[in-house]
Simulated scan of single mutants.
Amino acid sequence: MKAAERIIQAIVVLARIGAGLAFLLLIIAVLVQVVGRTTGNSPVWSEELTRFALLYLVAFGAGLSLRTGDMVNVDVISENLPGKLPWILRLISAAATAGLALYLLPHAWRFTAIGQMQSSPALGLKMSYVHFTVFLFLALLALFAVLRVIAMLTGAEDGKPEKALDAPEI
């Protein structure tokens, strides 16, 4: 395995770990809500924590979804075009995704910085930790899109999404 492949695999593993931890936190927060509502004293912070965990889940999962093809694709027409047109459209799509995400990153960072002056009502958490999910979402989406563009231009892949590990063939 080449060094570049190891780096990409490390990024994928870190994103999966982040998504897994966010999902675990989401499960715990929802469980606390359900048990609390059954007993009549649901803690107010559980609702807020659920939303924050969901934001981190989306932030970590977006790039992974781009990689595996789990994002919404409208490729019925494009993949049936003749010759290299499908490849060209996949390249343009990945480049446009990367470009838009990279363009929005500085604005997302400004949004994150605004959160320093605010705190969440129930948890008292600095909102910059919550607002950071927008930056993380865009950064990981840009990273995975750039990796796809590079892989396509070097011939390492054709730009088609990887199949999810456990996805059944349809």
Rank of each mutant, 00 (worst) to 15 (best):
F132Y: 08
K2P: 15
L143S: 05
G159V: 00
V134L: 13
W45D: 09
A15W: 04
L136D: 01
I11W: 02
A95E: 07
G63D: 02
L136N: 03
V13H: 06
L143G: 03
F111K: 04
V72C: 03
S120A: 15
F135P: 00
G61W: 02
L100W: 06
W87G: 14
R51H: 07
F111A: 04
A19G: 12
I8C: 05
A10S: 14
A22R: 03
L14K: 04
T112Q: 13
N41D: 15
L141F: 03
I114F: 12
V34C: 11
V76I: 15
W87C: 11
E157W: 01
W109D: 09
N73M: 15
L64F: 01
P43M: 13
N41H: 13
A98T: 04
R90H: 08
W45H: 10
K84M: 15
A98C: 13
Y56D: 00
G20D: 04
V30G: 04
E157I: 00
L26I: 02
H131S: 07
V32M: 10
A101K: 05
G18C: 01
E79T: 14
M1R: 11
A108E: 06
K2D: 15
V32E: 05
T112F: 11
G155A: 06
R6M: 12
I28M: 09
T133K: 07
S65F: 03
A98V: 08
N80L: 09
A122H: 09
L138Y: 00
M127A: 04
L14V: 13
S65M: 10
V12S: 12
L85Y: 13
L49R: 06
A53I: 03
F135Y: 09
A10F: 10
L102H: 08
Y129D: 02
V76Q: 14
E79D: 15
D75V: 10
M127G: 01
A145E: 06
Q118I: 06
Y103M: 12
L125E: 04
V76W: 14
I77Y: 14
H131Q: 07
G69E: 02
V32D: 03
A15H: 10
W87R: 15
H107V: 07
R90C: 06
L153E: 01
I7P: 01
G36C: 08
F132W: 05
I92M: 14
P121W: 11
G18F: 00
E5C: 02
A108G: 14
L125C: 04
P161R: 01
W45G: 12
A96C: 14
V149E: 00
V134T: 09
V58I: 15
R90F: 08
L143F: 06
